[in-house]
Design a protein around this nucleic acid. Structure first.
Length: 340
DNA sequence: AACACGTGGCG
DNA sequence: TCGCCAAGTGT
């Protein structure tokens, strides 16, 4: 006789999910006996890393429309994929996206592997994404822990250890809750709950399907969880961008593959130096770990050539297609180079 | 383990 | 306004 291994929490949450699941382009709604395309699952998971659903929706549609299969993407030009990624941030994801697509084609015959270890061996796929693909696309049981799960579980169990030290505890708690069947739905249910009911700075415990199971609610202060280690303050760096214009075109360079905005097109400029710089910045941009203040300096084509800047002139009217990171679109906007 | 790595939105 | 925050991974 089969044993029902579904925990009470999983049962409650899956019941809620059957009525409240978000309809997302990379997802198959519960109740249908089919599974989503692994390529679409993978694409969405890479895009969703540290990025909001609202932002991803649009880009996801563009990418899968332009490159419908992993074989198509593997054959794409690097510069096209990086330009299409422009504005999404964390550009290593775009470089790894291409490397992963090519690895899937070359090593796995164009089919994403089902095994978590094999998935993790692919570029850009870590523990979370491997578990997500195994469960969402292939229906396997996997323990899926992302930022949403960390928040919900830390509240459910009132985990008093700050992140990231609490990750092992949270993983074990999630493992204990994850059902043998519908493990993927269970995790996605937790994500939808985290978005609609159990948000970072707002909770609606009165409508929560897990309200009777929640230790944080019993303690009267759900927003106290998850505890987090204090973060360091953000240093300020300064530098110059060089505006080199000729015949209605502006000089663009390709940034080094490693480091900030790696592999992306950009404007030429100085390095970005810590500490004191000119107080007057034309453009300020806040990155995760530092704030950048840039001064825009006009430079003649002759001077740029004398300095040996390795770049190409790009027509100002087509700057949209260059795929510039947001830092540089701030500069081009400032220069009135794009028609609002 | 801790830090590098983007960006836009929200309270 | 501004710090916090979002479906993490690589080193």
């Amino acid at each position: 006789m089969a044993v029902d291994s579904t925990s009470p929490i999983a049962a409650s949450l899956l019941r809620w999910y059957d009525r409240h699941a978000r309809d997302l382009p990379w997802r198959i709604l519960p109740g249908r006996n089919i599974t989503p395309d692994p390529y679409r699952v993978w694409m969405s998971e890479i895009m969703l890393q540290q990025t909001t659903v609202a932002t991803v929706r649009e880009r996801f549609a563009q990418f899968v429309s332009r490159w419908p299969t992993v074989v198509d993407l593997a054959a794409a030009a690097d510069s096209d994929v990086l330009a299409a990624w422009a504005g999404l941030g964390y550009y290593a994801r775009a470089r790894n996206l291409l490397a992963c697509a090519r690895a899937v084609v070359e090593r796995h015959g164009g089919i994403f592997p089902q095994d978590e270890d094999a998935l993790r061996a692919l570029p850009g796929i870590g523990p979370y994404t491997a578990a997500a693909i195994a469960a969402f696309a292939y229906g396997h049981r996997a323990v899926i822990v992302d930022g949403n799960v960390e928040r919900v579980v830390s509240r459910l169990r009132a985990i008093d250890t700050p992140l990231p030290a609490a990750k092992a505890n949270i993983y074990d708690a999630m493992d204990a809750m994850t059902p043998a069947h519908r493990a993927g739905d269970f995790a996605q249910a937790m994500m939808d709950l985290a978005s609609a009911v159990c948000a970072p700075k707002r909770t609606n415990c009165l409508i929560c399907p897990l309200q009777d199971d929640c230790a944080a609610r019993r303690a009267g202060d759900p927003l106290r969880f998850p505890l987090k280690a204090a973060r360091k303050q953000r240093p300020v760096r300064h530098g110059e961008v060089w505006w080199v214009e000729r015949d209605g075109a502006v000089l663009l360079v390709r940034r080094p593959d490693k480091g900030m905005l790696g592999g992306m097109r950009g404007l030429p400029g100085s390095g970005w130096i810590d500490g004191a710089g000119s107080d007057v910045a034309d453009v300020t941009h806040v990155f995760t770990h530092f704030e950048l203040r840039l001064k825009i300096v006009a430079m003649s084509p002759a001077e740029a050539a004398r300095r040996g800047i390795d770049g190409a002139y790009w027509p100002l009217e087509q700057l949209d297609a260059a795929g510039l990171p947001t830092l540089y679109t701030k500069v081009t906007d400032k220069m009135g180079a794009t028609k609002a």
